[in-house]
Design a protein around this nucleic acid. Structure first.
Lengths: 238, 238
DNA sequence: TAAATTTTCTTGTATATACAAGTTTTGTGG
DNA sequence: CCACAAAACTTGTATATACAAGAAAATTTA
């Protein structure tokens, strides 16, 4: 067990169990150690263990069954891209390639930004970056991201082609997504998008605008996505 | 405060506070009574109050600030339909009309059902219903729903034109949505859909397939939605 | 040997309490 | 009257403990 300094024990628990599920130590359908067993292993008490397990349940990692135990589910957070053919034939990491079209850099908020911004956010400005995700070589998802530029020193040095944006924010800047909302609708590909996503103009595309609150009061992250869903659909969890 | 028999106190708290936010007693930006204040009002202790508040936070009703309090946010759960013009000009309840095209009735699962079903589910069969939602008179959302038919006596008597499916399941059958996943993609309207949604064939539509786990082990609910998003988009939370 | 019952183990709900850490309010001094 | 410090109030993290209720395992009985 890896108790990092200044990390609450319940978060250490979450991290450890999550890692063990991600690593395959516990597989789908397995039972996690019982609450009492975890209390012993971590020298703690049930409320602390239960807080960690509750969090894992909400993240979709486990399913809690009264009287039975905590059953390992599949890790599920954030957006995923899955093949339309066979819902279980998920896109493995090796088939997904992220291309940075525009590296993160500080900009002012666009004048017609579709979200209400606070004074703090307006003053701080944002970091703007664009990415194109390829699935099996096919450009599938185009994403523009605006990150409120608060307390994110040297953010621009991160390599977001290899690393997840949210994991990077979490690991290096202690930023966690707390909650969010998304607007979803279908559009026809215009000239620019048809070029980016390599489709004919007029093709139906999925359009999403997401706004994500973090643990920092004013640090909100916005993502605008266009997805060619002919071969792959968007999958997410709630 | 309304303590129903056999309802855990923390759930009573959730219900009461939720109702007070929905009713406008607490408005966006207001602070809820502190944890200690709620302990007094409900003759309970902080862990119980915190469990309720934690739940409300996760549902998006409040935002918790260390040292400050619980700030009322906007109620947000489930899918919403919002006008593309002005993201705050939400669809009020009076502008949304639900039409039952096919009343809930017991059927067998379709042979080509896109989700993996357990033996229990296959044996139980499902309740199938279809609805069409009109926004300001415009047919906007077509939804087919399959509910695993387990312990849902007399479900077919419910009037789902006037009442929310999930509220009905909760109130009369003690069924709660625990977690879910959704697949989203864009399609062109075929002949049947263009008729249902009153659009030209070929129109881009939003297509979603949702699978929702409940507090009952095998009782999963599936929804297949088609949405005309020219005037209104789908909004949801995570 | 199988069914029924009992025991054990599990998660769910809850109380009591304490200290840490962030924010707000109040009081004091210049 | 304003700035600073202290006090008070808030949420965050945690331990200890108990009982309720569901499920599994073990034991007993027919």
């Amino acid at each position: 067990m890896t108790k990092e300094p200044n990390t609450p024990l319940y978060k250490t628990l979450i991290g450890d169990l999550k890692k063990q599920i991600d690593d395959g130590h516990y597989r789908k359908g397995d039972l996690l150690p019982s609450e009492n067993e975890l209390c012993k292993r971590y020298s703690t008490t049930r409320p602390t263990v239960r807080q960690a397990l509750g969090e894992l349940a909400r993240m979709g990692y486990i399913i809690r069954r009264h009287g039975k135990g905590s059953i390992v589910s599949e890790p599920k957070n954030g957006l995923g891209i899955l093949s339309l053919k066979g819902s279980t034939a998920g896109v493995g990491r090796k088939n997904l390639r992220t291309e940075i079209l525009a590296k993160a850099q500080k900009t002012a908020w666009p004048a017609d930004f579709p979200y209400e911004l606070t004074e703090v956010q307006l003053t701080a400005g944002c970091l703007y970056l664009t990415r194109l995700r390829h699935v099996n070589g096919l450009p599938t998802l185009y994403e523009e991201t605006y990150i409120t530029d608060i307390d994110l020193p040297r953010f621009t040095v991160h390599n977001l082609e290899k690393n997840s944006l949210f994991e990077t924010l979490n690991k290096y800047h202690n930023v966690e997504i707390k909650e969010g909302e998304q607007k979803i609708w279908a559009v026809s590909a215009d000239k620019n998008l048809s070029k980016l996503l390599d489709v004919k103009p007029g093709k139906p595309l999925l359009h999403m605008k997401r706004s994500m609150q973090t643990n920092r009061p004013h640090l909100v992250i916005y993502s605008f996505l266009y997805c060619n869903t002919e071969e792959y659909f968007i999958q997410d969890y709630f």
